[in-house]
């Protein structure tokens, strides 16, 4: 990635229970942050289908994909890639993903990704 990273402290890791998601308001952006136990993942909190809150979905996994299922109509989104896994709808836009990590018990998100994604698009 060419653009510099922009790690932003979000919240204590303990605020997000295991295998659950929580929504975080970042300015005008709404981000869904998930605790997978061994790592945290962050995606845009908006299902590409009916705009449902992904942070309220059930976390699961099949094969290599870790997914969240939107609570409105059961669309499955891969939390690593942001791709729609179910139903197979390639034409629908992906969900934006953000790098996330935990440092000193604080979850951090790299907000530079947004810029790079936009440049790439």
């Amino acid at each position: 990635m060419n653009s510099p990273t922009n790690w932003t402290q979000i919240t204590p890791a303990a605020d997000i229970p295991m295998r659950e998601g929580r929504s975080v308001k970042m300015g005008s952006l709404n981000i869904a942050l998930f605790n997978l136990g061994d790592r945290f993942l962050a995606v845009e909190n908006r299902c590409p289908h009916g705009h449902g809150p992904l942070a309220d979905g059930i976390v699961g996994g099949h094969g290599l994909a870790t997914t969240v299922t939107c609570p409105l109509h059961n669309w499955r989104i891969c939390l690593d890639s942001g791709e729609v896994v179910k139903p197979q709808a390639q034409s629908s836009p992906c969900v934006r993903t953000y790098p996330a990590k935990v440092e000193n018990g604080i979850v951090m998100i790299d907000m530079s990704k947004k810029l790079s994604t936009e440049q790439a698009a």
Binding site: R22, V24, K25, G27, L29, S112
Partner: peptide, 21 residues
């Protein structure tokens, strides 16, 4: 309530470059 069960999490800091939407 359980941890942040009902609340929207407010970030501890805002990103360095404030982004437009």
């Amino acid at each position: 309530p359980r941890a942040t069960q009902f609340v929207q999490i407010e970030p501890m800091e805002t990103p360095v470059n404030e982004f437009a939407n």
